[in-house]
Deep mutational scan, measured.
Amino acid sequence: MQNSHSGVNQLGGVFVNGRPLPDSTRQKIVELAHSGARPCDISRILQVSNGCVSKILGRYYETGSIRPRAIGGSKPRVATPEVVSKIAQYKRECPSIFAWEIRDRLLSEGVCTNDNIPSVSSINRVLRNLASEKQQMGADGMYDKLRMLNGQTGSWGTRPGWYPGTSVPGQPTQDGCQQQEGGGENTNSISSNGEDSDEAQMRLQLKRKLQRNRTSFTQEQIEALEKEFERTHYPDVFARERLAAKIDLPEARIQVWFSNRRAKWRREEKLRNQRRQASNTPSHIPISSSFSTSVYQPIPQPTTPVSSFTSGSMLGRTDTALTNTYSALPPMPSFTMANNLPMQPPVPSQTSSYSCMLPTSPSVNGRSYDTYTPPHMQTHMNSQPMGTSGTTSTGLISPGVSVPVQVPGSEPDMSQYWPRLQ
């Protein structure tokens, strides 16, 4: 039975679970980093996980050691009161100082060594604690504590007292930064006198190289990059290397530039699409467009005044059976039934097929058609009795279509119309 579990990581490298990497692998990681390889490249070359490479390099940059820390136990506290007071002093002298600059000053002034120097995250935590204590304490208590930490007896009751030896409130920041720059020169002199001055200088240079600022491109470089971006948004590694040799930039910087440029292009394309949609959409909808001609068919113009009344309900007709019959029939052209047409008796099958359309009241044959006459024609229609054979009435077949029909004066039988409509 094995005491430890061995495995293979996602890159194909072998590791022992819970145990640190061998010293030979750690040394190779540092050597590759000094030669300029990126952590992701080191991870692929040595088949070590990216997190492990970053952790080893980060500890090497901070402490200069590649040895693993002790497994188990607690780390001794490195942010001692003396170190905290120095950090507060540096922050007062130059409020814009960075944590890694404070760390360098602690090393250069001999406050800490490589073994007990606090990390950048520890210094940031100390600065946050100082800021929170400043908010919790009152103004007087804060000034007393700062005077105690600074070891001075001057008056701290006013704002300019934060910067000793100065009279203009805006000047101390520059003086403090100048003092810090002077301390940086002392850093070089002190570290050069040490035993491991060369190694420390190499480590600091490598650290500065990794902690780079934003790349500033010249106009020629920007023009070359934009020209390549117009050709393709995704250049391959050969195109990037050719462009890197042409404009004297690292291939990694060119790759990052193209990634950022593609993101910018997507944002601009989104804005262009929004403007295009806004320009195509009308600002207001016309009133006429809300009524579609496919839904509402136009009603033909009436030929006679009587045809303006298109349904039985508008003429005072309360018989719903006839109203439904007229509205359900398709529109037909106007025609006239003459008196000489043969009077065919209704076929029983045809009569039964339209039995649902006729009223059940037996008085329908005896009703006159003056009910369908509009009010303004009552006088004219009353002067001509319906009993004469020459009287013409208008029957409504569908809305908007008038059918003048000659009705025999002897017997106005409704059943004569249905064979004609089939």
Rank of each mutant, 00 (worst) to 15 (best):
G138V: 07
L11C: 06
V83K: 09
R103W: 04
G138C: 14
R44K: 12
A139P: 08
K145T: 10
I29N: 02
W100V: 06
R103I: 15
V48Q: 03
K28P: 01
T113F: 10
N50L: 15
G73N: 00
S54C: 13
I102D: 01
H34C: 08
S4Y: 11
Q89F: 11
K86N: 11
I71H: 07
S108F: 10
D104S: 12
N114H: 12
P20K: 02
T113L: 11
H5Y: 12
V14Q: 11
E62H: 14
S132Q: 09
F98K: 15
K86A: 06
S85W: 13
Q2I: 07
S49G: 00
L149K: 15
S96A: 04
G36A: 07
V48G: 01
G72R: 00
S119W: 00
S132D: 09
R77S: 08
V111Y: 15
D23E: 12
Q135I: 11
I29D: 01
A79I: 07
V84E: 04
E93Y: 14
A79G: 08
V83D: 01
V16Y: 06
W100S: 08
S43A: 09
C52G: 13
R38M: 05
A139M: 11
S122A: 02
V111K: 13
G36M: 04
S65I: 10
N124K: 03
A131N: 05
L130M: 09
N17E: 05
N150M: 14
A131E: 15
G18K: 00
G141L: 10
G36S: 07
Q89E: 10
R77D: 00
P68K: 00
G72I: 02
Y143G: 14
D144R: 07
G12M: 03
Q27T: 07
D23Y: 07
S35T: 14
E133Y: 13
A33Q: 12
V16D: 13
E62R: 07
R77P: 02
G110K: 08
S24W: 10
P95E: 12
I66K: 03
A37Q: 10
L130S: 15
Y61G: 06
S132V: 08
S43H: 03
N114P: 11
N17I: 00
C40D: 02
R105P: 02
L106A: 08
S43C: 05
A33E: 04
C52P: 03
A70K: 05
N114I: 10
L107Y: 07
G73H: 00
P20A: 10
N17Y: 00
E82S: 13
I97D: 10
